[in-house]
Amino acid sequence: MNGSAAGAGLWTCHDCHQLVVAPPGHAHAACPRCGGAVHVRKAASLQRTAALLVASAILYVPANVLPVMTFTSMGRQQSDTILSGVAHLLLHGQWPLAAIVFFASVVVPVLKLVALAFLVISVQRGSAWRPAERTRLYRITELVGRWSMVDIYVVTVLAALVQTGSVAAVEARSGAFFFGGVVVLTMIAAETFDPRLIWDRCGARRE
């Protein structure tokens, strides 16, 4: 860990970013200034990220199997899952919309899961393979993750606005909650992942 603060035995407070001298032989410490927790890296980062990833992967199944919304129009009721909604849009020739929904609701969550899983595994295995690219991957993952909520926004807005009795009514269904869970959990997972871990190994190798 040469060349880094950690290598020099310096940690930063998570909350106030106060640089502190690490207590030798201890993994946990408290900030003398604000009392916040101080670790050399985010505590149990890999473990937490992995746990959240597992949870979101589990939730991803019902999120895609269960319908996210029910559209009732003139007595005709139609329940759509995310994928059937995309298919619907495609069938009706709305392919730009279909592309957006597909990208935001299907591609992004999957990519996020895959990317984070890849990062966690690679860090866990102590890989020194292309740390800069992996860091960029992490950045993109974190940046793009919030946009997967588009679907949820659409459902909530529609459910709030389209309530004209029997003419047309939109109702959010359980799939939406699971999908929201997936998005939130992956966002937290991205947050708990400590990208410095990517470089820790590289630093060690370089030394």
Partner: peptide, 16 residues
């Protein structure tokens, strides 16, 4: 750089 306060580790498996 001030020294950090020592906190003893309480558990190994995260509640996460």
């Amino acid at each position: 750089i001030p020294e950090s306060n020592i906190v003893t580790k309480r558990r190994r498996i995260s509640a996460i």
